[in-house]
């Protein structure tokens, strides 16, 4: 993780920390023992991971999450408006990988227009539109995590819709 730390320091140098997804809530991702909802062939089998409870979420304050394992950072965001792929009673809870699919730079959440932004190369992704790359260098839109909410308001990640940066298999072969 040395590189990530170095990179966060770089973020600080440019005074972007304030807006980064490092608005750490109490969200420590825990790997569930449940198996994936729907096995996908010939792809990988995703773990089901509890991310947080709906009660933990405040509009526009992203929780830092890890999915499908602790090396893969993401953001869980209550947008306050219904969004593509959104879950919860308001259909407004979404989660994305926060490693930019261009070069893995950590993305910052900008509440003013509900976007995730790369401070290094200026790519931007729309959290209301399934991670649509508004403008940027990535050759894919931002990977969105598939979420499920149970009756108790527990939010689980169960899969994702594209390859995340820095690994040739979304679920690492460890």
């Amino acid at each position: 993780m040395e590189r990530e730390c170095k990179n966060l320091a770089e973020v600080g140098r440019r005074q972007f920390l304030k807006g980064s997804v490092a608005v750490a809530g109490a969200a420590t991702a825990t790997v569930s023992t449940q198996t994936a909802a729907a096995p996908r062939a010939p792809g990988v089998e995703y773990p089901v991971v509890r991310l947080a409870n709906l009660a933990d979420l405040v509009v526009d304050q992203p929780l830092r999450i890890r999915y499908p394992d602790r090396r893969s950072p993401g953001a869980l965001i209550k947008l306050g408006v219904p969004a593509e792929g959104g879950v919860g009673p308001d259909g407004d809870v979404v989660a994305f990988s926060t490693m930019c699919p261009h070069q893995g730079i950590p993305l910052n959440y900008v509440a003013a227009d509900k976007t995730l932004n790369c401070f290094s190369h200026y790519s931007r992704f729309d959290c209301e539109k399934a991670g649509f790359q508004i403008w940027g260098h990535a050759t894919q839109n931002l990977t969105q995590f598939r979420l499920r909410v149970d009756d108790a308001g527990e939010i689980f990640a169960e899969g994702m819709d594209d390859l995340i940066f820095g690994r040739l298999s979304n679920v690492l072969d460890v």
């Binding site: 807006g19 910052n108 932004n117 649509f132 508004i134």
Partner: peptide, 10 residues
């Protein structure tokens, strides 16, 4: 998406 193409600082 029709949001601004300009990168923004939070």
């Amino acid at each position: 998406t029709f949001k601004s193409k300009d990168y923004r600082v939070a």
